[in-house]
């Protein structure tokens, strides 16, 4: 029974998350405290969920792409483009109080991110460019597009309706959490209530055999890139709404790497095949918690990335079965050298 628990794909990610939270608790005892002020909940945990929302979103989309055996490096750039187009449309608006203005802006960026996802998917399926190269194109070009939209400036807007997407709250919780929950439910329904999940896993596990079983693998792959683009676009809206500005240069910078990491920590293999949405969410939470922790314990800013890298390395090693086996073997060798000797001669 214990073995089954350890082998569950969420076991190690949850352990790591638990360890991180425990460390925070020991470091600052009021880490878990939640305060209700002006009808809103405040506290470190809420912050992690709130600031982590865009990353979770991007990672959900990335999970499906990785499950087909692909990868999407352009999500960070889509985040920037989506925020830029939304802020541009709002700043051009005449009636700042109009709800229609915000809806148009949101619609424009959602539509654009779908198109960008379609572009990635088309490069991968129609022109058969390797996913890492195909999405690298938009990763690089996308930053340029975002800066073109913002004319190289940081566009600031002051529109309370728009701000609500990233900084508002609903039922005492940040609104962004509800967006993420909504997208998570949508992704789960799409993949588990239709046959899409089966098709994604099948294509990712053995594309050739899937084709022979009659799957239209191209359509499946196209769909996941489009969905990934959508997730990144909405994440871009949350991010830019949270700070009421669009920075084409820095918004969503390195998101693709954090998202890939979250997916892998969550138990989905980079080789494609089985995917775990909840695992990904836990993975993204681990990364966000780590970032928060590093800031909280006051690691000097110039070495935060190094510290993060070491922790991530540790997390990956813990999750690696091969590494755990070696560790176990070493441990045994050190403690029972005589026994080792016997088995060697046997």
């Amino acid at each position: 029974m214990g073995g089954k628990l350890v082998r569950h794909h969420l076991f190690w990610p949850l352990c790591v998350l638990g360890a991180l939270l425990l460390f925070n608790l020991l470091y600052s005892p009021d880490f878990f405290s939640l305060v209700l002020r002006d009808g809103n909940l405040y506290g470190s945990l809420i912050d992690i969920l709130n600031f982590g929302a865009p990353l979770i979103l991007v990672s959900i989309g990335m999970t499906l792409v990785i499950a087909t055996g692909g990868i999407d490096l352009s999500v960070g750039s889509i985040v920037a483009i989506s925020g830029a187009i939304a802020c541009l449309s709002i700043s051009k608006g005449t009636d700042q109080s109009s709800i229609m203005l915000v809806l148009t802006a949101v619609g424009a960026s959602v539509l654009l991110s779908l198109v960008l996802g379609l572009w990635n998917g088309a490069l991968v399926t129609v022109t058969r460019i390797q996913p890492i190269i195909a999405t690298l194109i938009l990763m690089v070009a996308g930053r340029g597009i975002a800066q073109l939209i913002t004319s190289g400036q940081i566009i600031t807007v002051s529109n309370p309706n728009y701000e609500y997407i990233g900084a508002g709250s609903l039922a005492a919780l940040p609104f962004s959490i509800f967006i993420v929950a909504g997208m998570l439910v949508l992704a789960s329904l799409l993949t588990r209530r239709t046959a899409l999940g089966l098709f994604i896993e099948s294509v990712g596990s053995n594309a050739n055999a899937s084709r022979l079983a009659g799957l239209r693998s191209r359509t499946v792959i196209l769909a996941v890139y489009v969905f990934c683009g959508l997730c990144a676009g909405i994440a871009g809206l949350i991010l830019s709404a949270n700070v009421s500005s669009a920075d084409g240069n820095n918004a969503g910078l390195w998101y693709e790497l954090d998202a890939i990491l979250a997916v892998v920590i969550g138990g989905t293999s980079l080789n494609g095949g089985r995917f775990y949405l909840i695992g990904t969410v836990v993975g993204a939470l681990i990364i966000q918690t780590l970032t928060t922790t590093i800031y909280m314990i006051g690691v000097p800013p110039e070495i935060t990335l190094v510290v993060k890298a070491f922790v991530v390395l540790a997390v990956c090693l813990i999750q690696s079965e091969a590494f755990r086996k070696t560790l176990k073997l070493r441990w045994k060798k050190r403690h029972y050298p005589a026994e080792q000797e016997v088995t060697r001669h046997a």
């Binding site: 089966l198 896993e201 099948s202 990712g204 596990s205 053995n206 050739n208 055999a209 899937s210 022979l212 079983a213 799957l215 095949g273 089985r274």
Partner: peptide
């Protein structure tokens, strides 16, 4: 060209 490694027997049958 046949089996999908990562999937179960059930999933392979209905694919």
């Amino acid at each position: 060209e046949g089996i999908i490694d990562d999937l179960t027997v059930r999933e392979n049958i209905i694919l």
